[in-house]
Amino acid sequence: MTGSIITVKNVCKRFKKVEALVDVSLEAKPGEVLFIFGPSGGGKSTLLRCINQLEKVDEGEIIVDGIRVTDHGADLDTLRAEVGMVFQLFNLFPHLTVLQNISIAQERVRKWPKAQANETAHKLLERVGLPEKSEAYPHQLSGGQKQRVAIARALAMNPKIMLFDEPTSALDAEMIREVLDVMVDLAREGMTMMVVSHEMGFAKAAADRMVFLANGRVVEEGTVEQIYQNPKEARTKAFLDQILY
């Protein structure tokens, strides 16, 4: 287990009678990009949400950056500050400007002075290609721009890990690329990432390993080439045949 920044051990999660996760175990090393895919309802999002404890697990344990987050009384605020999360529906704060969206957590959680927070925010906006949008409100942005701001907002906390929960699923086709570009750059810079997505192009470009999750179980995991060219499980092959045109 040494050397892993995320360790998921025998995790089970039920929603009433639905088994969302069944005995799931996974590991990610620092700098690794894990691509998690599979049919909808397979437990992909639930797994991500368990890692930063937006959902509690029923059984098993999750260790993130040395903190056993599944322990009762674990310091979740500190954990979450180190784990950035990007949501399918962006979840930007509509009452704040783009700049405020990015700087609010730095000021309130990190207690950095406003000037420093704004400087970081401007740098990040530059990095995601939206330097001119700092004073705009979220409703004035396109979907792709919103998601790039959401990525900048998560990065502002200087996290060690980034979780992406279907970041491009709510986007029009022509906006997917601009978001994926930002994510690929991030992966190349050495960020540890867990990405739940259907964008196989991203997996090819940036993922170190792929994990196929179905019915709450890890059906198969391996390198990108291995999963693509030589899937061991029939379910994986069937799923890939369905989504690859």
Partner: peptide
């Protein structure tokens, strides 16, 4: 619900998220 989740996932406490978001 996503507003609270986004605020919490940035490390804000429950009351910070209530007050600022």
């Amino acid at each position: 619900k996503g507003q609270m989740e986004a605020a919490r996932s940035l490390g804000m406490s429950y009351f910070q998220a209530m007050r600022h978001v």
